[in-house]
């Protein structure tokens, strides 16, 4: 089942065509990797999906509903979760409180001035933290967590709204190899079990070729290849503009 459908997306900045005529789709339970050299248009593409940048042309449909013109907030409410390239969490709160904030927002309780925030949805938050393996660290302040653990917290936060689509911008940037694989395995597991569609950008080719179900390659704002990892890896054009000889 197609969760996200992108058709003929285009965006220009001051005369430079950052993205031109890009179309692809992501299905439920599928991990789709978006790769390409710096400046290929990955970030622009990503930001057009989550409402930060308005495209010049084309359509973005989530479960058959257009996302164009919606704010990041509205898109999140429809069921699109996201993680950031550089982790963004609430540093002055504990791990549990971070997830509680997402739950409070999901249940539209953010304006309550009478409830006690720390007592709201604590059980639900712990259940989500257990799913990402962070239950033991629930009471630690986010500001002192290790990087890989912050990424897990972000996953738990993203899951709080029961999303059907997860957007992950360079999820494993800055992590050691073993951590990378653990995080992506977790993401894959959550996706398959919950039928969540996952779209991620990534620079680490080990991660891409181990965990992605499908890969799309952008270069110069255009989609130059699409397919299963092995086929993309063998593609001559992809090797030339991006992968190189494969030694590095």
């Amino acid at each position: 089942m197609t969760v996200l459908a992108i058709r003929n997306l285009a965006k220009a900045y001051g005369g430079v065509q950052a993205v031109r005529d890009v179309s692809f789709a992501v299905a439920a339970g599928e991990l789709l990797a978006m790769i390409g050299p710096n400046g290929a248009g990955k970030t622009t593409c990503f930001n057009m999906l989550n409402g930060q940048v308005a495209p010049d042309a084309g359509s973005v449909e989530f479960e058959g509903r257009s996302l164009l013109g919606l704010s990041p907030r509205q898109i999140w409410r429809l069921g699109v979760g996201r993680t950031f390239q550089i982790t963004a969490t609430f540093g002055s709160m504990t791990v549990r409180e971070n997830v509680q904030m997402a739950l409070l927002s999901h249940h539209r309780r953010l304006w309550s001035m009478t409830a006690l925030a720390t007592r709201s949805f604590a059980g639900d938050a712990d259940a989500l933290l257990a799913r990402v393996g962070m239950r033991e660290q629930a009471d630690r302040p986010c500001a002192v967590l290790a990087y890989g653990d912050l990424k897990r917290v972000e996953l738990a936060v993203a899951l709080a709204s029961r999303p059907r689509l997860l957007l992950m911008d360079e999820p494993t940037a800055g992590m050691a190899p073993r951590e990378r694989n653990e995080l992506m395995q977790l993401a894959a597991e959550l996706a398959r079990r919950g039928g969540i569609a996952v779209l991620f950008t990534e620079h680490d080719m080990d991660v891409v070729f181990t965990h992605a179900d499908r890969v799309i390659v952008l270069s110069g704002g255009e989609l130059i290849a699409e397919g299963p990892p092995d086929a993309v890896r063998a593609d001559a054009r992809v090797r030339e503009v991006y992968l190189g000889s494969g030694n590095a």
Partner: peptide, 18 residues
């Protein structure tokens, strides 16, 4: 708490619907 969330990370706060 939502107030502090907006201070700590406006990006994240926006992304979870605050």
């Amino acid at each position: 708490y939502a107030l502090r969330a907006g201070r700590d990370s406006p990006l994240r706060a926006d992304a979870i619907g605050i």
